[in-house]
Design a protein around this nucleic acid. Structure first.
Lengths: 143, 143
DNA sequence: ATCATTAATCATGTTTTTGTGACTAAGCCA
DNA sequence: TGGCTTAGTCACAAAAACATGATTAATGAT
């Protein structure tokens, strides 16, 4: 898969927060419940999102998480980099360590163009785009 | 990453076999050594490649592995499917189970076009292409 | 027939990723 | 202050992926 599960879960949490921006802080437990994510694992992801300036957290009654950055200024790529690092950019697709124009495996030259397109897609697609998709009901939840 | 390590290793083994098609059977240990792959793990991959008609194996002195299919008729996609199954095609990129036009997450519609391009790349690129890259020295081995 | 050579099998170990639960610290409100 | 609510932290458990080693079975050469 392109993303690790962490990245996928974090993106879903951010979309949820973006959809509830005007309702005050959202509980971690509420995100876990409605997005169907493992609560304690999500908790760790939210902490990472918090310490990296994506969300704000506040304790106590009325507390919870709120989005710090604007949804259209959070690219999927940002979240991807935060949780998965530069794997897509640097790791050899054939499991041969790091691949670049300097040390390349035999697919590197062929793959790098397509890879750049994928990266570009992830950089251009934002949380706001996903919120729009949800609002347009252009998605069908799993049974 | 796109591929699991299994897939990457298997592709490297196939490229190696393709490069040595006219020198008789190649030992698993020789592939492991020159491709720098963990030998017992490679052994399992070769068995899978063998039971799926990619390579032939023969025991005893003079034995080893030979390519059964022509290099230009082995797409990277074939190897990918063998070891990783339909993960790219079916798995939800956000870790939400299976995604299709019937049950889609909020990125599905946006992602599926790019995904199709990646799949198409993997279907069009063959072991023969990688051999060509090696022959043209269009690769630089890791230090 | 025996021996060296080679793949196949099996059981096990290690690491990474994912997931859980108990506890701690902080903030709000009465 | 005291108690409730909430995130943060920590230690650990489970699962998957990755890797190793020892043993067995098959084959060809002598």
């Amino acid at each position: 898969m392109i993303f690790s599960r962490q990245t996928g879960y974090a993106i879903r949490a951010l979309v949820h927060l973006a959809q509830n921006m005007n309702n005050g802080a959202v509980l971690a437990s509420a995100i876990a419940k409605t997005e169907n994510l493992p609560a304690p694992f999500l908790s760790k992801l939210l902490r990472d999102l918090s310490s990296n300036g994506f969300v704000n957290s506040s304790k106590g009654p009325g507390g919870g998480f709120t989005l710090l950055r604007k949804p259209d200024e959070i690219a999927l790529y940002d979240v991807f980099i935060l949780f998965d690092g530069l794997t897509l950019a640097q790791d050899c697709i054939l499991g041969h360590g790091v691949c670049s124009d300097e040390t390349a495996c035999c697919v590197h030259q062929l793959w790098k163009t397509k890879k750049a397109e994928v990266e570009s897609f992830l950089k251009l697609t934002t949380i706001a785009d996903l919120v729009k998709m949800r609002e347009k009901k252009l998605w069908i939840p799993q049974p």
